[in-house]
Simulated assay, not measured.
Amino acid sequence: MDAPTKRVEILPAQRRVMILERVRRNGAATIQELADEIRASPSTIRRDLDHLTEEGYLERTHGGVLLVPPLRATFEREPSINALLQHDQKVAIGLAAAARLNPRDSVIFDSSSTVTEAVRAATLRDIPLTVVTNSLDIAQLCAACPTWRVIMSGGTIRQGSQMMVGEPGETFLKSIHVDICFVGAYAVTGRTLTDATLEVASLKRLMIQSARRTILLVDSSKFQAPAFSTFCDVSAVDEIITDDGIPAEHLAALRSLNVKVTVVPVTPSEA
Rank of each mutant, 00 (worst) to 15 (best):
residue 1 M to N: 13
residue 1 M to E: 01
residue 3 A to P: 12
residue 5 T to L: 15
residue 7 R to P: 09
residue 8 V to R: 15
residue 10 I to V: 14
residue 14 Q to G: 01
residue 16 R to F: 03
residue 17 V to T: 08
residue 17 V to A: 08
residue 18 M to I: 10
residue 24 R to G: 04
residue 24 R to E: 09
residue 27 G to N: 06
residue 36 D to A: 15
residue 36 D to T: 12
residue 37 E to H: 13
residue 39 R to W: 15
residue 42 P to Q: 15
residue 44 T to V: 08
residue 45 I to F: 08
residue 47 R to N: 10
residue 52 L to T: 08
residue 56 G to M: 03
residue 57 Y to D: 07
residue 60 R to N: 07
residue 62 H to I: 10
residue 63 G to Q: 02
residue 65 V to I: 08
residue 67 L to F: 04
residue 67 L to C: 03
residue 68 V to F: 11
residue 69 P to Q: 11
residue 70 P to V: 01
residue 72 R to P: 06
residue 72 R to S: 15
residue 81 I to Q: 08
residue 84 L to C: 13
residue 87 H to E: 12
residue 91 V to K: 04
residue 91 V to S: 05
residue 98 A to H: 10
residue 100 R to G: 04
residue 102 N to R: 13
residue 102 N to C: 02
residue 102 N to S: 10
residue 105 D to A: 11
residue 106 S to L: 07
residue 109 F to M: 12
residue 110 D to T: 01
residue 113 S to F: 08
residue 116 T to A: 14
residue 118 A to K: 05
residue 119 V to S: 06
residue 119 V to D: 00
residue 120 R to S: 10
residue 122 A to S: 12
residue 123 T to E: 07
residue 124 L to H: 15
residue 126 D to S: 13
residue 127 I to W: 14
residue 128 P to D: 01
residue 129 L to H: 07
residue 129 L to A: 07
residue 130 T to A: 14
residue 130 T to C: 06
residue 139 A to P: 03
residue 139 A to E: 05
residue 143 A to C: 02
residue 144 A to I: 07
residue 148 W to L: 06
residue 149 R to T: 13
residue 149 R to Y: 09
residue 150 V to E: 08
residue 152 M to T: 09
residue 153 S to V: 13
residue 154 G to E: 11
residue 155 G to A: 06
residue 160 G to N: 03
residue 160 G to A: 03
residue 161 S to Q: 14
residue 162 Q to S: 15
residue 163 M to S: 07
residue 165 V to S: 10
residue 165 V to I: 14
residue 170 E to Y: 14
residue 175 S to D: 09
residue 178 V to Y: 10
residue 180 I to R: 15
residue 180 I to H: 05
residue 181 C to R: 04
residue 182 F to I: 05
residue 184 G to N: 01
residue 187 A to Q: 08
residue 188 V to R: 12
residue 188 V to F: 09
residue 189 T to Y: 14
residue 190 G to N: 13
residue 192 T to F: 11
residue 194 T to V: 09
residue 200 V to F: 12
residue 200 V to M: 10
residue 203 L to D: 04
residue 214 T to F: 06
residue 218 V to C: 12
residue 220 S to I: 00
residue 220 S to F: 02
residue 220 S to H: 05
residue 223 F to K: 04
residue 224 Q to E: 04
residue 225 A to G: 08
residue 229 S to Y: 02
residue 230 T to K: 15
residue 230 T to W: 11
residue 231 F to M: 11
residue 231 F to A: 09
residue 232 C to V: 08
residue 236 A to P: 03
residue 237 V to K: 09
residue 237 V to Y: 01
residue 237 V to D: 02
residue 237 V to L: 06
residue 239 E to Q: 10
residue 240 I to N: 00
residue 242 T to F: 07
residue 242 T to L: 09
residue 246 I to H: 07
residue 246 I to F: 05
residue 247 P to A: 09
residue 251 L to D: 12
residue 252 A to P: 04
residue 253 A to Y: 03
residue 254 L to R: 09
residue 258 N to K: 05
residue 259 V to D: 00
residue 260 K to G: 00
residue 262 T to P: 07
residue 263 V to Q: 10
residue 265 P to A: 00
residue 266 V to D: 01
residue 266 V to R: 02
residue 269 S to V: 04
